Computed example of a mutant assay.
Amino acid sequence: MNRRHLHFICEGRTLAATLDSASAAGSTGLLIVSGGNEIRAGAWGGQARMAARLAAEGVPVMRYDRRGVGESEGDNKGFRGSAPDIAAALQAFRAAAPHLRRVVAFGNCDAASALSLFAADLPGIDALVLANPWTIEDEDDAAGHAPEALRRRYWHKLRDPVALLRLLTGKVNMGKLLRGLKASTRKGGPSGLAAEIQAGLARFGGPVAILLAEGDRVAQVFAAHWPSGDVRVQRHDSASHSFSDEDAQDWLFDRLIEATAVRH
């Protein structure tokens, strides 16, 4: 395995990337798209370690900092403005590894959402692995929590004498409470962003794997908005949003190996 750093241009800005080349050059590569303000090394270096591990198994891996993050120039336009970054990274990956026949794109959190929204319009992505896609449109709104979790939360509060006393003495924000109760009684169904993700994936022609850490709140909200019978969804009992614990890392590695296996 050989690791080297490289740079590429996205709309006039210089972006930083890292390429882990496989010693036995595989024909399928993995592009890791980072989410939020996360740098390309990933949480606690998890993406860097995963890249090295995959490269040792013959899978070239490129990861990069999108504009305004880490070592990359420009302004961070958020996941909805990241399509040019992904497109430029794809082009750079294929230029740096011209032997590649397929590229699988992997993203966690809002990077998974970005790939869902834009992959159908980005030539060069052959398959997607989406981990804990972000579907929360207003994190400060109680409606951003899964209804099942809200119901459990309010049931516990109603059994708590201290919480009841705060309610009776006017120390509870009634507007927020009513919004939360309304959200806790709604039936599962696609939110605006979840519906957009569904539409984006419907336009994408390649294989898709959706990976959920069952104990992660972002994954729980996604599951509450997503069709329960979708066979593309795979679950692990981890509570780590980034699959950072050892067992979850091994599970994620196996899923990425499956996704990058050569298909004839």
Rank of each mutant, 00 (worst) to 15 (best):
L211P: 06
V208H: 04
G205E: 04
G206L: 08
G188R: 10
S191I: 02
S191D: 09
V218H: 10
A199E: 12
Q198R: 14
A219I: 08
S191Q: 06
G205W: 01
R186Q: 15
P190I: 03
K187V: 11
K187I: 05
D216W: 05
A199Y: 00
R203L: 14
A199F: 00
I210Q: 08
G192F: 02
V218K: 09
E214N: 11
D216P: 12
R203G: 13
L201T: 04
R217D: 10
P190Y: 01
A199P: 01
E214S: 15
Q198C: 11
R203A: 15
A199H: 02
F222S: 08
L211K: 03
G205P: 04
S191V: 06
V218Q: 14
L193I: 07
A213S: 15
A202K: 13
D216I: 10
A209E: 12
V208C: 09
G188T: 03
A194S: 15
R203C: 13
L212S: 14
A202C: 08
E196Q: 15
A194T: 07
G215P: 13
L201C: 10
G215I: 10
A209P: 00
S191R: 05
A219Y: 09
A209W: 02
G189V: 02
A194C: 09
I210M: 11
E196R: 14
G206I: 06
E196H: 02
F204T: 03
A219K: 06
I210D: 04
G192T: 13
G205L: 05
V221A: 15
G189A: 05
L201M: 09
Q198D: 06
G205R: 07
R186Y: 01
E196Y: 00
G192M: 02
A209G: 12
D216K: 08
R217N: 09
R186D: 05
R217M: 13
R217V: 13
D216H: 10
P207L: 03
R217T: 11
R217P: 07
I197N: 12
A209Y: 01
G188L: 03
G192V: 09
R217F: 07
R186I: 07
R186W: 01
L193Y: 01
V208S: 08
R203N: 12
A219P: 11
E196G: 09
G206P: 04
A194D: 06
V221P: 00
P190K: 11
A199S: 13
A213W: 07
G206R: 02
I197H: 14
V218M: 13
F204V: 07
I197G: 01
G188Y: 01
L193Q: 10
V221T: 15
A219Q: 05
F222H: 11
A199N: 06
Q220S: 15
V221Q: 15
A195V: 00
E196M: 12
D216L: 10
F222C: 11
V221E: 08
A194I: 05
L211N: 06
V218W: 10
R203H: 06
D216G: 14
A213D: 10
L211W: 04
F222P: 09
S191A: 13
A199M: 03
A195E: 12
L212E: 11
A209M: 04
V218P: 12
F204R: 01
G188D: 13
K187E: 14
F204E: 01
